[in-house]
Design a protein around this nucleic acid. Structure first.
Length: 273
DNA sequence: CTGTAATCCTGCGAGC
DNA sequence: TGCTCGCAGGATTACA
């Protein structure tokens, strides 16, 4: 579900309703997430006000005012972060409830598969949360020359490269396939065989695809919703993802589906080279 | 350094 | 209709 455009959609939706609000309570669900919340973190966040809501790659950062720390959320595959009136019934698989201000509203984290995480971290010299140390540049700040340098000695295929968050942050399976199709590059191409011109084209394609997807408020495949159950619309504009067997929208050739880098991968065998 | 597979989970659709 | 099976947008780890 949530890759960069979906996370950005959530962040843009949450920002106006969360900034300036105080975290006055925390209740944990019965089941632990991928990385467990440490009890000692309670006192770090209680009584603190949310200064800003930002995105980095697929991570959501809630900066805590007058501290050098954040609550950081990763939505995994099925995570949802939403502000709800406290009187609303709690959905099954709600793992975190933060009471806001006087308790009329709550910030809830909901995640059936529990692949996501909610953590607290102090800012380090070089990163705001531990995982940021391994994170590559934002796609919109990615310089084609740097991208090319990063992949030009690699024997890995482009699909694996795009899914690698340390090369570029925020691209997942859907947008990797969409970007490669737009750039007319095969997902199986090795990094070392990509020319500088092709690297540039791919970087531009990533930006174009993500920009359009953000405009459409992300893609809703089965479970991505933001805010009050609103869905994204980009799934109607897929040119590659999940189109195996269907004809390429550019050249009418039947699209091929293979498993690559452990992921379902779809491409056109004719116009992607 | 690579790729592959397994792993953490629930939900959903396909197929019988 | 009800069952089982396989697969799913992510990230990490172990192993060949």
């Amino acid at each position: 579900m949530p890759e960069l455009p979906e996370v950005e959609t959530v962040v843009r939706h949450l920002r106006p309703v969360l900034v300036g609000r105080k975290l006055n309570g925390i209740t944990l669900g019965r089941h632990r997430l991928r990385s467990p919340w440490k009890p000692s973190w309670d006192s770090e966040i209680l009584g603190k006000t949310i200064e800003s809501v930002e995105r980095r790659g697929k991570w959501i950062l809630l900066q805590l005012r007058k501290t050098d720390s954040h609550v950081i959320v990763h939505l995994g595959m099925t995570g949802r972060l939403l502000v709800t009136p406290a009187k609303d019934p709690q959905a099954l698989h709600t793992h975190f409830v933060f009471s806001l201000d006087q308790g009329r509203d709550e910030l809830r984290y909901h995640d059936p598969r529990r692949f996501g995480s909610v953590i607290w971290a102090k800012t380090h010299d070089t990163h705001r949360f531990p995982q940021e140390a391994e994170l590559g540049p934002e796609p919109f700040a990615l310089k084609p020359k740097d991208f090319h340098n990063a992949i030009s000695n690699s024997s890995r295929c482009l699909k694996a490269i795009l899914l690698d968050q340390s090369i570029v942050a925020g691209v997942g399976n859907i947008y990797a396939d969409e970007s490669l199709h737009r750039a007319k590059l095969l997902p199986t191409r090795q990094g070392r065989n990509v020319t500088p011109a092709e690297s540039k084209k791919l970087c531009q394609a990533i930006v174009a695809v993500l920009t359009k997807a953000i405009e459409r408020k992300g893609s809703t495949i089965s479970s991505f919703y933001y805010g009050d159950g609103e869905s994204g619309n980009f799934q109607t504009e897929f040119n590659a993802y999940d189109r195996a067997g269907e004809s390429c929208k550019r050249c009418r050739t039947p699209m091929i589906g293979i498993r690559l880098a452990g992921r379902m991968t779809t491409y056109c065998p004719v116009c992607q080279i």
